[in-house]
Design a protein around this nucleic acid. Structure first.
Length: 690
RNA sequence: GGCGAUGUAGCUCAGUCGGUUAGAGCAACGGCUUCAUAAGCCGUGUGUCGGUGGUUCGAGUCCACUCAUCGCUACCA
């Protein structure tokens, strides 16, 4: 009997902020696991979506003066771009604001109604008559009813620690409008979770679905007493889905958010001719949720309760991870340690972070620390010094002859590497990536020692020993390939590069068991650049706020995934003006060879209206002529000497004024709005852009 | 306050059912090597395993207390 297929979800990022390195712990942990499962031949899909509803989005859109839909579309595009930048490969990335989600919410709501779980009750809340909306706790400030401290939020007092309802605040003020809110009663709908108490007790405590500390936490914190009713509705105005049988009321964002997992799966099913029931109502599918520890409650009590009631499969496992700290402290905007995904990508290779996180991630809820010094050391030492170095110190020796015809005697190394596959696979499967990387690096050490003991550089000098040289390099490159197979879930790009170098793509975990002999190898080129510590510093500097952090207010609403998220807000005009192109694969992108080049000459072309004739150097003798349509934005003098990024393998084009042998990349709308792409210091002509 | 966790070498962490002189990687130091992206190899660790007390022939490993750190504490998203 074949193993069940696997459906994996990561928490839905909230459409109110950008992805930062804290969020990425989860998406990378999940991506690595999915890639591992796929590599071993398991049928597995990775599902995610943007979480788009709620008061915070509504308020934000109002502040921006545009429709919520526009705002969330823009955020979603940014999220997807960030994920793609880190090689996080979702099978489907949906949105909770989708037609599919609405239909599913309706159905699940019907089940809850039918099961008699829904009750109505009046809730008194503060209402902002100016903004015309009920106020969530964080949108109200006032004087603490207990200690009389002023300027406290609606839920608890930072001075005395008292907790209270916002309606208890003395002299409350709405942070939205500055007006004095009034008390107003509205009807809310509740889910009586207590009716499912017995089921939740056994599901959470079975030891099969949760980490033990999570089960303990739930037992101690919630399950020891009656479960409270869960308020799942919000009165208008609210950005979300209106409840069909309760007009004027909307589902609370946390009701429809997890249903987004199903909705996104449904979209995937539609695209791939699959049946949703095969994935969400079948014993032949294991559902695995990956979440941060801050949203444990929703995924381990409420969500199983909903699934159970509505007749969907329960999660096989909810994997919960800890938070990210940077240099041992909470991420801090002012210290520049709250680093956005896009800022990271401007400076550093995503492979670095993928590897570093992997090397620190275990199966438990401990927080993981991004120690910036260790980050640079470890990445350089492990990836460049140990693994990649194996290829770069041997491949060149046998570029012309390829691999030996028969696999040489290697003292059992290949066998040993192959046999380690099982242990490494087990570590991956158990989410113990730290162990997996440790095991892989142990092997890399052995491979390097083999190089040392067999000194191919000495063999090279002796014409009598060329066969030996080829044999030694064949062994090392085979070991290198085994390491690449084992690292594929973490470093998919390296895996592809290894396939190109040895002209045999890595397609399966079992590739680590087969020897490559008698085949040619490609000309060696660097597989990865070293991590320069100064780039880390630049990244931190760029992450620091330019102005002091704004005081608390509507801007600072937490995202559903760990960590604070307020970041500068850019307008969506540029994106709207030119919508995203259809998705391209990494292979598509790899066809375009972008190179850093230096402008060594720039000349006016008198007859041309838009063109400047550039002579650019890729280093050495490699000089070419490029015509660029940037006359309105730049003068030739401004260009000489600077570094640009060019498309270096573009088919040359005969233009009126001469042959253009490439294209200079630039952003902007055109005309005077043209901004050449530059590179951070450190790059030199000839560097490829990856 | 309650609850869940964590506290082992300068840093990040392993230490399985309690059992001989407590381990790894990084960093540091010494030597070797030069094929490689100043990469590699060999060698070097006097750590009261947060503290106190207890159980035991024996505890980093179990128990109690204690200190420190982190997180959660549902109508916040």
């Amino acid at each position: 009997m074949s193993k069940p297929k696997i459906l994996v979800t990561a928490a839905l990022p909230y459409a109110n902020g950008h992805i930062h390195l804290g969020h990425l712990v989860e998406y990378l942990q999940t991506d690595i696991w999915v890639r591992f499962q796929k590599l071993t031949g398991r049928r597995c899909i990775y599902i995610c979506a943007d979480d788009t509803h709620g008061t915070a989005i509504m308020i934000r859109a109002r502040q921006e003066g545009r429709p919520e839909e526009e705002w969330i579309a823009e955020m979603q595009a940014a999220h997807e771009r960030d994920f793609a930048g880190f090689d996080i490969a979702f099978d489907n990335y949906g949105s909770t604001n989708s037609a599919e989600n609405k239909i599913l919410c309706d159905g699940i709501w019907g089940s809850l109604r039918q099961s008699g779980l829904i009750v109505e009750d009046d809730v008194e809340q503060l209402f902002d008559t100016v903004a015309g909306t009920f106020l969530a706790d964080r949108f109200v400030k006032g004087t603490c009813p207990n200690c009389k401290a002023v300027d406290q939020y609606g839920d608890n007092c930072s001075a005395c620690g008292a907790t209270y309802a916002p309606t208890d605040l003395i002299d409350p003020v709405s942070t939205l409008s500055g007006s004095t809110p009034v008390k107003k009663t509205a009807k809310h709908l509740f889910v009586q979770l207590e009716q499912l108490h017995e089921f939740l007790d056994s599901w959470t405590q079975s030891g099969e679905h949760l980490q033990s500390e999570v089960a303990n936490y739930l037992k101690g914190h919630f399950l020891g007493k009656p479960l409270r009713d869960w308020d799942v509705s919000r009165p208008a105005p609210y950005f979300g889905f209106e409840i069909p049988d309760s007009p004027g009321n909307y589902w609370y964002v946390w009701f429809d958010a997890p249903i987004g997992y199903i909705a996104s799966t449904w979209q995937w099913c539609q695209k791939n001719g699959e049946s949703l029931d095969d994935w969400w109502k079948s014993d032949d599918t294991e559902i695995h949720h990956f979440i941060g520890k801050d949203i444990t409650y929703f995924h381990t009590l409420f969500w199983p309760g909903v699934l159970k009631t509505a007749g969907y499969s329960l999660p096989k496992f909810v994997h919960i991870h800890g938070f990210l700290t940077v240099d041992g402290e909470k991420m801090s905007k002012s210290k520049g340690t709250q680093i956005s995904a896009s800022t990271y990508l401007k400076h550093l290779d995503p492979a670095f972070l993928r590897y570093y996180y992997a090397s620190k991630l275990g199966p438990r809820l401990d927080d993981i620390d991004l120690n910036l010094t260790e980050f640079a050391n470890k990445v350089n030492s492990d990836l460049i010094g140990k693994v990649i170095n194996l290829a770069s110190r041997t491949a060149r020796f046998i570029e012309s002859v390829g691999l030996s015809k028969a696999y040489p005697e290697d003292g059992g190394l290949f066998r040993e590497f192959a046999d380690s596959g099982e242990k490494i696979a087990q570590a991956y499967d158990q989410l113990d990536y730290a162990r997996a990387t440790r095991l892989i690096m142990e092997l890399a050490d052995k491979a390097n020692a083999y190089v040392e003991n067999n000194a191919p550089w000495a063999l090279k000098k002796d014409p009598e020993r060329q066969q030996e040289l080829q044999d030694v390099c064949t062994v090392v490159l085979n070991l290198f390939r085994q390491l690449c197979v084992y690292l594929t879930p973490i470093l998919p790009r390296l895996s592809v590069q290894c396939g190109e170098l040895l002209q045999s793509p890595i397609q399966s975990w079992s590739d680590s068991q087969t020897q490559l002999v008698g085949s040619p190898i490609a000309k060696f080129q660097h597989l990865m650049q070293r991590l320069l510590p100064e780039k880390v510093q630049m990244m931190i500097e760029e992450s620091k706020p330019e102005v002091p952090a704004e005081t608390a207010g509507a801007e600072q609403v937490a995202a559903p995934v760990s960590g604070p998220t307020s970041v500068p807000t850019d307008s969506g005009d540029a994106l709207a003006a030119e919508p995203l192109a259809p998705t391209c694969t990494i292979e598509d992108f790899a066809k375009v060879d972008l190179r850093v080049a230096r402008v060594i000459k720039a000349e006016e072309v008198p007859e041309a209206r838009k063109l400047i004739k550039l002579t650019v150097s890729l280093g050495g003798d490699n000089v070419r002529t490029v015509f660029a349509g940037i006359k309105a934005a730049y003068t030739p003098e401004q260009l000489i000497g600077r570094l640009v990024v060019i498309v270096a393998n573009l088919q040359p084009r005969q233009m009126k004024f001469g042959l253009s042998e490439g294209m200079v990349t630039a952003a902007g709308a055109g005309g005077t709005e043209v901004f050449l792409l530059g590179v951070d210091s450190g790059a030199v002509p000839g560097h490829r852009v990856h």
